[in-house]
Design a binder for these strands. Sequence first.
DNA 1: AGTGTCAAGCGAAACGTTACGATATGGAGT
DNA 2: ACTCCATATCGTAACGTTTCGCTTGACACT
Lengths: 341, 341
Amino acid sequence: MPEQSKCTMRDVARLAGVSTSTVSAVINETVAVSPQRKIRVLRAMEALDYEPDAIARSLKTGRTNAIGIIVPDITNAFYPEVIRAAEEAAQEAGYSVLLCDSSEDSNLEERHLSALFSRRVDGILLACCVNSRAQQTLSRRRVPAVFVDRLPPASMVNTVCTDNVQAGCLATEHLIGLGHKRIGLLAGHTALSPHHDRLEGFRKAMQEAHLPILDEYLMTGDVQFEDGFDAARRMLHLPVPPTAIMASNNKLLMGVLRAAEEQPLRIPQDVSVLGFDDYLWNEHFNPSLTAIAQPARQIGRKSFELLQQLISGPAAARDSPLHAVFPAELRVRRSTGAPRG
Amino acid sequence: MPEQSKCTMRDVARLAGVSTSTVSAVINETVAVSPQRKIRVLRAMEALDYEPDAIARSLKTGRTNAIGIIVPDITNAFYPEVIRAAEEAAQEAGYSVLLCDSSEDSNLEERHLSALFSRRVDGILLACCVNSRAQQTLSRRRVPAVFVDRLPPASMVNTVCTDNVQAGCLATEHLIGLGHKRIGLLAGHTALSPHHDRLEGFRKAMQEAHLPILDEYLMTGDVQFEDGFDAARRMLHLPVPPTAIMASNNKLLMGVLRAAEEQPLRIPQDVSVLGFDDYLWNEHFNPSLTAIAQPARQIGRKSFELLQQLISGPAAARDSPLHAVFPAELRVRRSTGAPRG
DNA sequence: AGTGTCAAGCGAAACGTTACGATATGGAGT
DNA sequence: ACTCCATATCGTAACGTTTCGCTTGACACT
């Protein structure tokens, strides 16, 4: 049964018969220590079950080896994957992760930021919420930060995200390729960069195919199940309804499914359905759901890598912002098919 | 544009023309300060955009106002809900959360624990992984800890979880009530307390109904999609197959669905299907999935509350372990029905 | 022998806070 | 006028590290 571990570097030093500086040198391998002393120190550390106090170390060095991650809603299955990958990379590099959930509330987001500043984190990974003031708040500080997935309107920031314009394009082209001409889009909250960009991709693809974009086939704004249900129902009841509907968010998509079921319309024979964000269970739906998949793990890992680069690189390197963009992938399943007739 | 905020208590004190002790007193409201001085201090803090250094404070006070949360897999949708609720409660109480994902790997779990100890967190919330040594590791330290959802075999620990025996009972009774006599169970990894307990609940309910428990209808061990698929397929190909199958884990359940589809068997006419853990999309499956729902948010919140009690209560109070058990809830949907004939 | 070089080790001063004992200040009670 | 107390304020010693400059020996070269 080892010690109660209430022990400090001084205890180790005393037991080993050396000074605390030597213990520190052994721990950090910062200067050479003779082998026999090194062994004495290591033995003492072992015997006392010594563990360096990260707090004291941070106070002295000014570095905490901790980063903050703020997401708008950890319950949204996309973020856990990002977080996991980032945390994995962080842990490999000896960093810990302080997790904050802003609940899509910019005031809470600000409070989280303050807390992180106060804790002197070395850097921040942020998927910002609607109406976020984070960009200004961060620019006042000297804390390295990388915006992930949800980007602020401002430009001079470091970012990692999916190429959502391409994603919107890809999805639309898939449907056009199947023969669809009337495509509906529940675009979500266009103040959020992913939703905004997907809409843009949609527009681009439609234009390139010389297809008109009808107001009745476009819905922006809220992103809950009921919103999707209402919007899809409205579209499907039009005199000339769309033959395919895309939803920029999972809950909206569920709403579309429900609206189709209600009529009832068969998927994909009567209406094709496509979602953004691919989840494990999409494959097991009946019919299985065609979806755009984002490389969440890559995004998470890359975010941390960029952040670490900012943290440990020279301060000058922070002047021109870093960017990483990943392509989205289309997973074709059974919920999309050729339109009737 | 405020200051660069490289400022310390001394800067504030100098500007306000008081001593650092007074500034500290104002911040912590630990001793009375005359109104006019208090105002001077507050103004100075404002002017310098001062933010207390949590690191220095922690070093001095021995408290970090941070807790650690370790989960086996944040990608499992149950945990984000727990985490969110716990984090919410923590943030309300002025605590930050250090998040760790053990990837179901006990060595990584140990490393995370060490890191948390080193960072001197005030307490730890832990959903332990298979073969966890966390209980021993924690018992050596004086760090308050609460085990959440996944409990270690040992008894003298603080715990918060669903009543999984009742959950297993409830699910089984539901099927028995519908007229099922031959019920299959993919019980998952019985070394994990939730899975173990659900199996026990199943046994109890079957016994009370005087129904036999057949080995061929019981599968334990792995918990991946393929495992569920193989096991369900095997059961459904038996000369006398079960008329209902329950799965203790979402991936297993997906395997069951796939196996049924393959035959093909209709759900619920040919075979009823029931899952543990209720997710948003269960309702939107076709057919919608009957499931046991755990009160994840309540569990998360309560976990933090108990932990805080341990942290701020007298050390003596830590002797007899705290427990909180929440009832599970059955959500009856379309995937379960009366057996044929 | 005297000098210079170098590595290994040490002591002490920070880092930014809090907490504690000590010191002023100003009435009220005698 | 004197003590006595309560109240407000301050100086300073920690907390457990790292870092920096200094000392010490050992050793090689004149």
